[in-house]
Design a binder for these strands. Sequence first.
DNA 1: CCGGTATCGTCAGTGCACAGACGAAATATT
DNA 2: AATATTTCGTCTGTGCACTGACGATACCGG
Lengths: 154, 154
Amino acid sequence: MAAVDLSTHPGHLARRLQQAHYLLWNTMVSEEITSPQYAVLNALVAEPGLDQRTVGERVGLDRSTVAEVVSRLGRRDLIDKVRDPEDGRRSLLRPTDDGVRAHRRLTVRTARMNQVFLAPLSADEQSVFLDLIQRVADAAEGLRNPAEPLTSPR
Amino acid sequence: MAAVDLSTHPGHLARRLQQAHYLLWNTMVSEEITSPQYAVLNALVAEPGLDQRTVGERVGLDRSTVAEVVSRLGRRDLIDKVRDPEDGRRSLLRPTDDGVRAHRRLTVRTARMNQVFLAPLSADEQSVFLDLIQRVADAAEGLRNPAEPLTSPR
DNA sequence: CCGGTATCGTCAGTGCACAGACGAAATATT
DNA sequence: AATATTTCGTCTGTGCACTGACGATACCGG
């Protein structure tokens, strides 16, 4: 019996954490707008007029996924999407008035949800928690882009 | 501009963490067998003959998802699935010889991947990290089953 | 023995997430 | 100016994950 204890596997814990968050979001924040949709909306409230590629960079989503999330947000009239007249490849995105209102409403609820989510930890532990997750995630994402060699090998 | 800094949102960080892990798994462990598939296989190596429901409980997956993962593992002949003769509702699962071998191989690679994944943290930080994630995930999962009231209302 | 209830697996529907391929548009090279 | 390369969005295919509904089986009270 060579089985392993998954509770020492960060990847498995990450999945469970994410699922737990998904459930809490559904009950405490919104059943229509998902967390990734909120993240995209938030990025566009911060910087209206971003193209899809850049939005993906901001929130950590690849182009295909951004396209799907954007299409859902557009279907609900929470964002507008227009071709960039100066660069026909780009689609420029900005929140509608409805989108801004939805974002404002969800921001309040999200804050409440985060409190509940982190409640099992003390204030000190909470900041450590956020810091550690961020460092691990950043480092792992860094492994994707092998950081351009100084002199490109031909 | 009422936008928010997502790096203080544990849910958003959880998603990024999970995605980072997904990528690392693909490059360092396996492109065919996914992390959830490994989790199910691991549960069955530990306790051969479990039914799908219990497997889901062990690894933190709902019945629908377990059904899909099980079907993929079955398609690759890594597990066997038979109706329980003593309870026609249950399907009993056990790893095949191939499944046990695959599990053994992946276990080695997974250990290596975990080291890389956690490398940005010191040894102390690593154990704190695992402890904190687990506590948050456990607590949030606990919110789902509101712990039967002592006297049922009505 | 028999009807009500609970449990298990399945199925349909929705949504996130990735890789790989492709066309259109812009930029770089020659 | 003509061709090559890069970039952006899209599309296809695979896989995880949940909800809600359904049929089959098992269990329980009368």
